[in-house]
Every structure is written in structure tokens, then in C-alpha cells.
Amino acid sequence: MRVGLIPAISVPRRRHRAAQPPDEDAELVARLRAGDEQAFVALVTRHHAAMLRLAGSFVSSTAVAEEVVQDTWVGVLRGIDGFAERSSFRTWLLRILVNRARSTGVRERRSVAVGDAGPVVDGSRFDASGAWMSPPQHWIEDSDDRMHAQALAGHIKKTLGELPERQREVVVLRDVDGLSSDEVCQVLEISDANQRVLLHRGRSHLRQALEAEMGRA
């Protein structure tokens, strides 16, 4: 991330929680190959939440998402000897998941999420010259107090659920799970430019939703 002009609020460059040190995975994979059951459970534990979230963006219910995750791990066990370590384990794992989730999601296709187009901020908020007429309202300071923070988490989850699915996948992988843009491109098999467009639209929707929510308070 490039440092902008504005240090108005500090956002950590990368969350420590999300960044999984790849070497730890490599060690567990080596132990798994040697037949260590504990290593398998450790790998599952490390990646479970991210997998469930990602699977959930393809299929309609948590139960089906859990099935997809289980199915993925069966695939991992069958394929682990063929895993060439050209990509990181996590990238390889999530790709298997995406392939399985896509075929499952197509089978039980819910309403097709429509990709949206058009500007990310409604044109009516700008004057004819393109300058703000109805500028963003302040809310960042309020988002830090504890009561708001709780409500906002729920609101963000809800809005994520309403995003077109490609946007949701990218935002979840990048901003919740902390994958790099390269990893996201590999996992979802999309171009860098495409990844950025989806990220832009998804994040802009979330910002809009937060502004609407905080403006109401």
C-alpha cells in the first residue's frame, strides 16, 4: 500500500492475525506427508475460517459451505503428494476450494448475483463540474466507540452478504483474510486489473453502507 498524503487515521499496513507465515504451513505439510494426523488437524484449524467464508460466497447455506470445506480437505489429502509447492499451500488449498465451491454453487444456483456497473458514488452527489455537492458525512471517529463498533461489525457482515459475489470474494480474501492481490488473482483466476475493479466496487459499497448507517445515528 502506498503511503498517502493524509495520516488522518492510521490503518495498519497488514494485519498480523491474517498473514499466515508460509513456512509454518510448509512444515505442517511435510509432517502431513509423513503421516502425522495432528499436522492435518493443525492445517485445518489454521485455514478453516477463511475457507468457510470463501465457500460461503459461492453457496447458499452454511451447511453446504461446510460440506465444500470438508470435500476440499479430502481433495487435499488425496492430492498432497502431488502438491508441487510452486505456489504457497494456502493458494493451492483455496484454489481447490474455489473449484469445488463453483461446481457446487452452479448446481444449487441461487439468484444470480448481478455485477453492478456505473459510478461508485451516486452522480447526484456532485455538481455539474464534478465537485462534491453532498460531501461525505463524518463518521470515522464514531466508529471507534464500543457501542458502535459492535453494531458496525454486524452491518458490515450484512452488506458483504449483499455484494455481488465476485466483489464479495475479493473483499473477503483481501480485507478479512489478508491475502495479497497476487494471491487473490491466483485463487480466483482473475487478472490484476479485474481484481482491483472488484475490490474498488466492493469497498466503495461498504463505505457507502457505513456512511448511511452512521449518518442515521
Binding site: 487515521i9 490503518v11 495498519p12 458496525l152 461489525a153 480485507d175 478479512v176 469497498r203 466503495s204 457505513l210
Partner: peptide, 23 residues
């Protein structure tokens, strides 16, 4: 626009606080 950019950063940060379901 400075406010807008700050809000995008805040949005990213708030999204990153979502906690995972543990096993």
C-alpha cells in the same frame, strides 16, 4: 475527498476486524 479517502481506509480497517468462526 480527503475525508472520503480516510473513510475508505477506515472501511478497510473495520472490515478487517471481522472475526472468524473458530473450529
Amino acid at each position: 475527498c480527503t475525508e472520503y479517502l480516510a473513510q475508505m481506509r477506515a472501511t478497510i480497517e473495520l472490515t478487517g476486524r471481522l472475526r472468524a468462526e473458530d473450529l
